[in-house]
Computed example of a mutant assay.
Amino acid sequence: MDWDKIRLFYEVAEAGSFTRAGERLGLNQSSVSRQIGALEHELKVPLFHRHARGLLLTEQGDMLFQAAQEMLLRLETTRSRLTETSQLPAGNLKVTATVGLGAIWLAQRVSEFIELYPDVHIQLIVTNEELDLAMREADVAIRLRRPAQPDLIQRRLFTVHYHAYASVAYLERFGEPKTVEDLDNHRIVCLGGNQPPFVLAVHQLATLGRDPKDPRPRHLVVNDSLALRHAIEHGAGIGMAPAYAMEGKPNIVKILRDIEMPSLDTYLVYPEEMRSVARVQVFRDFLVSKAQSWAY
Rank of each mutant, 00 (worst) to 15 (best):
R145G: 11
T159H: 07
D151C: 09
I125N: 12
E112G: 04
L131W: 08
G175V: 01
V168P: 14
T159C: 04
V120T: 04
Q108G: 14
D119W: 14
D139Q: 05
I153T: 06
G100R: 09
A103M: 12
V189D: 04
Y162D: 10
L131T: 14
V189R: 04
E172R: 13
R156T: 08
S111R: 09
R155L: 15
P150V: 04
A103L: 12
V140A: 01
V160G: 13
L200D: 01
L183D: 02
S167H: 02
F113L: 03
V99T: 15
W105M: 10
A164Y: 05
L191G: 07
A97S: 05
V202H: 06
R109K: 03
Y117I: 08
H203N: 13
V110H: 15
L191Y: 10
N128E: 14
E181W: 00
I188H: 10
H161L: 13
V120F: 02
E112N: 05
T98V: 10
G193H: 00
W105S: 07
E137V: 10
R156L: 15
A169R: 14
G193Y: 01
V126T: 04
A201C: 05
Q108M: 14
G193V: 00
A148Q: 12
H163V: 06
L191W: 11
A164R: 04
R156N: 07
E112P: 04
P197G: 04
C190F: 11
S167K: 02
I114Y: 15
W105D: 06
E172T: 08
L133F: 04
D151P: 14
A148H: 12
P197Q: 05
P150Q: 07
S167M: 00
A201S: 10
R136T: 05
L200M: 01
L124G: 13
H203Q: 12
L106K: 01
H163Q: 13
I122M: 06
L191T: 08
N185Y: 12
G100L: 11
L101P: 10
T98K: 09
K178L: 11
L101T: 14
A164E: 05
E130W: 10
A138H: 08
G100H: 12
Y117G: 04
E129V: 12
A103W: 09
H186K: 01
R109I: 02
R143M: 14
Q149S: 12
R145T: 09
S167P: 00
R109G: 00
A138I: 09
E172Q: 15
F198H: 13
L144A: 13
F174S: 09
F198E: 15
Y162I: 07
I104S: 15
Q108V: 14
Q149D: 12
L124T: 14
M135N: 13
S111T: 11
V160E: 15
P118S: 03
A97E: 03
Q154R: 10
L106N: 02
D119Y: 14
L124F: 10
A148R: 11
R173K: 13
W105C: 10
G175D: 03
Y165I: 03
D139E: 08
V140D: 00
N128Q: 13
E172W: 06
F158S: 09
D132H: 08
P177L: 01
Y170D: 01
A107C: 06
G192D: 13
W105N: 06
V180T: 04
T127S: 02
P196K: 08
